[in-house]
Amino acid sequence: MDTELILKVYPYFLEAAVVTIELSILTIVLGLICGALGATARLSRFKALRFLGAAYVSFFRGTPALIQLFLLYFGGPQIGIQLDAFEAGVIGLGVNIGAYMTETMRGAIIAIDKGQGEAARTLGLSREQAFRKVVLPQALRLMIRPLGVNINAQIKGTALVSAISVVELTYTAQRYIGSTYKPFEMFFLAGVLYLVIITITGKGVAYLDRKVRLPA
């Protein structure tokens, strides 16, 4: 292990880790928004919306995220979408993870006993009130852990934007592997930073989950 080299290049890796964190936060926020919209569409009363939701999930979960990213970034200009690499990365990956989050959220909502909604309706709540005040709060509690899995996957998924030259952790590691021929050191540096980000996020999710968990 070449510690001297590691000490020399680690500031660049820290800078890159900040970009990875930014990408993670933005894609996750966009993913949660897309997931909420997608789940709403998939559980809608209207057939057209249900179909749209299902098509969204099917396309984005049925093809590689890398291809979606390339299609948006390299193919976008042909259909009038001009984005820089960072923007394309956030939008491409955010919409992609949104499809997975759609299924997570939908799964949590349909896991709530039907009787809950029915009882609320019987007590005089409107359909919308019954969902917002009775079903959704219970479903949110069930969502936290599986959404944590999506979030964990997405943090690692941000590595894909290195393929469209966004200077984040994996791109930085790759560039230094190329220029220093020290793959293990560079992997070690980038790996430690990813693990720190993922471990902290995981702890946060576990804390949130414990906080809202019903006593057994």
């Binding site: 590595a159 590691a173 790759q174 021929y181 980038a190 693990l195």
Partner: peptide, 22 residues
């Protein structure tokens, strides 16, 4: 295993491809 679950696959591929040559 912990290392491989906590880092991106892409990074692992670079490690294996360039690391084994090393």
């Amino acid at each position: 295993a912990w290392l491989f679950m906590g880092t991106p696959l892409l990074l692992q591929l670079f490690l294996i491809y360039f690391g084994l040559v090393q």
